[in-house]
Amino acid sequence: RKEMTAACTPRRRIINLTSVLSLQEEINEQGHEVLREMLHNHSFVGCVNPQWALAQHQTKLYLLNTTKLSEELFYQILIYDFANFGVLRLSEPAPLFDLAMLALDSPESGWTEEDGPKEGLAEYIVEFLKKKAEMLADYFSLEIDEEGNLIGLPLLIDNYVPPLEGLPIFILRLATEVNWDEEKECFESLSKECAMFYSIRKQYISEESTLSGQQSEVPGSIPNSWKWTVEHIVYKALRSHILPPKHFTEDGNILQLANLPDLYKVFERC
């Protein structure tokens, strides 16, 4: 597991931080080997919608929660590849102030007048994250320049770009939802926020969305749709870069829909 690298990086740093090793061990302890084997050997059937997909393993048909699986995938990559990410360069710098204002204007932020003026909160978020810029760049390849612009994001899987519609809320939550006081809790909560931002979430995906850094293989055609990215990038990574937690067998994120021999018997009677 320590050699797990989802995106190509030129050289690998050895990380011996106790906090990170502890988080890696927790993933191992909570892992479910049968689910790992199923995901490793599954045959992708198709997307139901951005949140759900169908896959077959041996004779069984499964309904998989793409949102939760991708979130767990990105969390584990962030923990196992800690401080070893490439950088996704933004085509132009994104001012943190503008991103924070967009987030505060969104109902998702939960902002009320009692929280104070949005401009003041946005300025605080910019200054707060600028103070964390060195650590964010060093460990997470999340790059913020001296003017308070976001200029780079971590490359977690080759050819995958997170849904940038979720970027404003991500920046807001970096400042408000991460435990910045304790090292282990900081790395864990920061990785979880980043994983949620990178995950496939239906509120940020339309039929026209593209999450891939590449064009489709047909010359002159439109960019790959999110469905292509889910199948050929995300579920491909799920084959080798995730140890599913045991609770996925109990919380409805992986559901067995049918045993195909039983279905064949039904059709034979028709």
Score class of each variant (00 low, 15 high):
92 E>C: 08
77 I>P: 00
56 Q>Y: 03
255 L>A: 05
126 V>D: 12
170 F>M: 06
264 Y>L: 06
32 H>C: 10
113 E>K: 03
47 C>L: 05
30 Q>P: 14
139 Y>N: 03
60 K>G: 12
95 P>K: 03
246 K>C: 14
116 G>P: 15
270 C>I: 15
61 L>N: 01
256 Q>A: 06
168 P>S: 13
255 L>V: 04
136 L>W: 01
194 C>V: 12
254 I>Q: 02
218 V>E: 07
102 L>H: 08
172 L>D: 00
197 F>S: 00
68 K>F: 14
264 Y>E: 04
26 E>S: 09
54 L>I: 03
232 H>N: 05
75 Y>P: 00
243 L>I: 10
57 H>W: 11
164 L>P: 03
238 L>I: 06
97 F>S: 02
21 L>M: 03
128 F>A: 01
261 P>I: 13
247 H>E: 05
228 W>G: 05
4 M>K: 06
136 L>P: 00
261 P>K: 11
138 D>A: 03
119 E>I: 10
5 T>P: 10
173 R>A: 15
86 G>K: 14
156 L>V: 11
233 I>Y: 14
31 G>A: 06
164 L>T: 02
182 E>L: 11
170 F>T: 01
130 K>G: 15
109 S>G: 01
213 G>C: 06
121 L>A: 03
200 I>V: 11
260 L>I: 03
2 K>V: 12
15 I>M: 05
193 E>H: 02
234 V>K: 00
47 C>H: 04
113 E>P: 05
56 Q>S: 04
127 E>D: 07
210 T>V: 06
149 N>F: 11
85 F>L: 05
187 F>V: 03
141 S>R: 07
185 E>Y: 09
25 E>L: 14
233 I>H: 12
32 H>L: 12
35 L>V: 10
211 L>C: 09
234 V>N: 00
185 E>C: 06
40 H>D: 12
132 K>E: 07
24 Q>V: 12
88 L>M: 08
58 Q>S: 06
233 I>A: 10
131 K>E: 14
88 L>I: 09
58 Q>W: 15
51 Q>N: 05
151 I>F: 10
220 G>T: 11
53 A>N: 01
224 N>V: 08
131 K>R: 09
228 W>C: 10
128 F>G: 01
135 M>A: 03
55 A>P: 00
93 P>S: 04
244 P>E: 15
86 G>H: 08
61 L>Q: 02
264 Y>D: 02
213 G>E: 09
163 P>R: 06
32 H>Y: 09
181 D>N: 03
256 Q>F: 11
62 Y>F: 04
55 A>Q: 02
171 I>G: 00
91 S>Q: 07
33 E>L: 12
249 T>E: 03
159 N>D: 07
161 V>N: 05
77 I>V: 06
16 N>G: 07
163 P>I: 09
63 L>P: 00
196 M>A: 04
230 V>N: 06
135 M>T: 02
233 I>M: 14
247 H>L: 14
210 T>Y: 05
83 A>P: 10
28 N>H: 05
264 Y>C: 05
1 R>S: 14
176 T>N: 01
42 H>N: 08
188 E>M: 05
92 E>W: 14
201 R>V: 12
160 Y>I: 03
124 Y>F: 14
36 R>E: 13
224 N>E: 07
32 H>P: 15
174 L>G: 00
167 L>A: 04
147 E>M: 08
116 G>A: 15
264 Y>R: 11
267 F>A: 02
128 F>D: 01
44 F>R: 04
134 E>F: 03
